[in-house]
Design a protein around this nucleic acid. Structure first.
Length: 411
DNA sequence: ATGCTCGGAATAACCACACCCTCCG
DNA sequence: ACCGGAGGGTGTGGTTATTCCGAGC
């Protein structure tokens, strides 16, 4: 069955835009995402060649098809022979790259139509070329005329990766025993091992920072350059809270108390495991049902983007779901529970243990409070001591039922 | 398949008043 | 150009009310 473009309904859908939750043909993708600056930020990838409904994140070189997470698992996890298939990550892009640039991103796609240079590209160049996040990331792609079309790619060979390594930028974690190597690296791409952490499947700081949602993330505060990994985590590995603080860690992960969650987590958590001499730290995320559940149940939480972008500073609850959807992590987070989880042999935690963990998680979640920016400390100080009636401020001298200072009632 | 009810979660509204900002003389 | 006063708008937190959404029937 041929799936048609959600927009025109005439051409075969090729590109998937998660922000729009739409499968588009190249032509409509170009026209739709050249509409305005926001739409140009949408990250698109190929549509899964198998289910035609999910964004592809893996290219099976052997079968010459692009697969979503689900289909990749179903197709490659089952049989030994299939699991040996050579696979590579499917790149994604934002902006309006030309057909030539698309060919560079997806050299295996043969039917890329000609989409000439448009005003969109020009606007994109003005918007993104100077974007330091792109240059910092090192994943930008230079077009012939030197314009950065903000093509962000992941170039790691993903052979042998398991589901958990999909969650992380494995090659960026030097202390982890990830069997990955770089193959088929597109021209103009920086070595991913030298890049900073970025969103798996898509890519990180460039995108996230660009989104405004992460604008409070200050790299100067915590230098997360992987080159400083030892310097960074060498101190914090044994106790990441030294780096981020207890509350921030709790707030970020929300699953701190969950058994088994620590070492399944990516980023600092995984690094934490590596620091204590666990070579095989990377385990399938599905190895812990609780963890998977926690992730899925937290799919609308902004801090989940931390998993993939390390954008953990100054996150508040102000961002909309759309922001998360724009985050590449959404390809995972917004999905339903992966079908491969039930297949995992380690998912047999005792139900009581699981329920306890879930309970702790929910309590933690409830207790968690997103940082609220207080513009005027003096006003806050006053509000903190102001007497109230049913939560409302009362006039000075009036009866009150709540006094923050004395915790007593006047009546 | 559809509609209804229920419960939980998320969000908005409310209150007083010190402080901030703008305007004007 | 600078200063000071007047006046209006803003922001602060705990509680309640309202809205939203999913599950179950």
């Amino acid at each position: 069955m041929v799936y048609m473009c959600d927009f025109c309904g005439e051409q075969r859908s090729i590109v998937y835009c998660r922000s729009d939750a739409a499968s588009l043909c190249f032509s409509c993708d170009h026209s739709v995402h050249s509409a305005n600056a926001l739409s140009r930020r949408h990250f698109r990838t190929l549509v899964c060649d198998r289910c035609n409904s999910q964004p592809a994140f893996i290219r099976c070189v052997t079968e010459k098809i692009s697969l979503c997470q689900n289909c990749d698992w179903l197709g490659h996890a089952g049989s030994t022979s299939a699991s040996r298939h050579q696979r590579q990550a499917v790149n994604c892009y934002s902006g309006c790259p030309s057909s030539a640039e698309l060919s560079t991103i997806w050299p295996f796609v043969s039917d890329i139509p000609s989409v000439g240079d448009s005003t969109c590209e020009k606007e994109m160049s003005s918007m993104r070329i100077s974007d330091k996040s792109v240059t910092n990331c090192g994943d930008s792609l230079q077009s012939k005329d030197g314009q950065d079309v903000s093509v962000l790619v992941k170039v790691n060979d993903v052979n042998n990766i398991d589901k958990s390594s999909f969650w992380m930028e494995s090659s960026s974690m030097p202390q982890l025993n990830i069997k990955s190597k770089i193959v088929d690296q597109p021209v103009g791409l920086a070595n991913s091992t030298s890049s900073k952490m970025f969103c798996p499947g898509t890519k990180g700081p460039a995108y996230c920072e660009d989104d405004g949602f992460y604008e409070d993330f200050n790299m100067d505060e915590v230098d997360l350059n992987i080159e400083n990994y030892d310097e960074l985590f060498g101190i914090a590995l044994n106790n990441p809270e030294q780096l981020f603080g207890n509350d921030e860690i709790d707030s970020l992960f929300g699953v701190k108390d969950m058994p088994g969650a620590d070492l399944k987590c990516q980023g600092t958590r995984a690094a934490e495991g590596s620091s204590i001499g666990q070579d095989n730290v990377v385990q399938p995320a599905c190895s812990n049902t609780v963890f998977a559940d926690s992730v899925m149940s937290s799919k609308t939480e902004p801090n989940l983007c931390f998993w993939t972008s390390l954008s953990f500073s100054g996150l508040t609850g102000e961002s909309s779901v759309g922001d998360y959807q724009d985050c590449s992590a959404s390809s995972i987070l917004l999905m339903e529970e992966p079908p491969w989880c039930p297949q995992c042999p380690e998912s047999s935690l005792p139900s009581t243990c699981r329920s306890d963990a879930v309970l702790r998680y929910k309590e933690k979640k409830a207790a968690r409070k997103f940082d609220k920016k207080v513009r005027y400390a003096s006003r806050k100080a006053r509000a903190d001591v102001r007497r109230r009636v049913k939560g409302r401020f009362v006039k000075a001298g009036d009866d009150y039922d709540y006094d923050p200072l004395s915790q007593t009632r006047s009546c």
